[in-house]
Simulated scan of single mutants.
Amino acid sequence: MTERATVSVDQFLAHPPRKVWRALTDSDLLARWLMPNDFRPVPGHRFTFRTTPRPRQGFDGVVHCEVLELDEPRRLRWAWRGGRLDTVVSWSLVPEGRGTRLFLEHSGFDPDDPVQRRTFTLLDGGWRSHVWPRLEHVLTDLA
């Protein structure tokens, strides 16, 4: 079996951990920087994200998730399943000076599957170039 691939991103955010935690766990805020959802910060809660379908990749636009771990305000993990993906997204918050170092790991991509390999490449860049700036914008608006 081939080792699974992981997207790893970390970023310093000039906001305290409680504020970052709120942006990660409040459904309305989460929708502003990630996707519309029915998230609740409760271990075992099943929820969905909704986005643009990509039928040629076997993706109907719905990401099925489940809260796997919740350790406020330090760690959040959820299952992330959609199309051919069965992955896990993990967030870790570490206080750093007057802000927070936020770590993201999106793990479980099968590098032998061409669709998953392409999705890994898209998400590896997308988390950095699209999602992170939107999160920063939402955090700044919460001031």
Rank of each mutant, 00 (worst) to 15 (best):
V115W: 03
P41C: 10
D10S: 13
S90N: 06
T100W: 09
V20T: 12
G58M: 09
L102W: 08
A14G: 11
F120L: 10
M35I: 00
V115N: 02
S27W: 03
D38R: 00
P73C: 11
P16Y: 02
K19H: 08
T87W: 02
T140K: 13
F103N: 10
H15K: 12
V115Y: 10
L139D: 05
F59P: 07
R46C: 09
S92I: 11
S92A: 15
L24E: 06
N37A: 06
R128D: 07
H137A: 14
D86I: 01
L70Y: 14
P111K: 04
D10P: 00
R101F: 04
R54K: 14
D60N: 15
T100I: 09
C65A: 14
L85K: 03
V63R: 08
D86M: 02
T2E: 11
L70G: 10
P16F: 01
L123H: 15
F39M: 06
P133A: 05
E136K: 14
F120M: 00
N37F: 02
R75Y: 05
T25D: 01
L85P: 01
D86L: 05
L142Q: 07
R22Y: 00
R4L: 04
W132K: 10
V62N: 13
V94H: 15
P41W: 03
C65N: 12
L29D: 01
T119M: 15
L142S: 05
L93W: 10
L76Q: 07
A79E: 07
E72I: 06
P111N: 07
L24Y: 04
P73H: 11
D26T: 07
D38K: 05
V131Q: 14
D28Y: 06
C65T: 13
P55I: 08
F47W: 09
S129Q: 12
H15E: 04
T48F: 09
G83F: 11
S27L: 01
R98C: 10
T51Y: 04
T140G: 13
R50D: 09
F120K: 06
H15Q: 09
K19P: 00
F120D: 03
W132G: 06
H15R: 12
P111W: 07
N37I: 01
G82E: 08
D113I: 02
M35T: 01
L70Q: 12
F59A: 09
V115K: 03
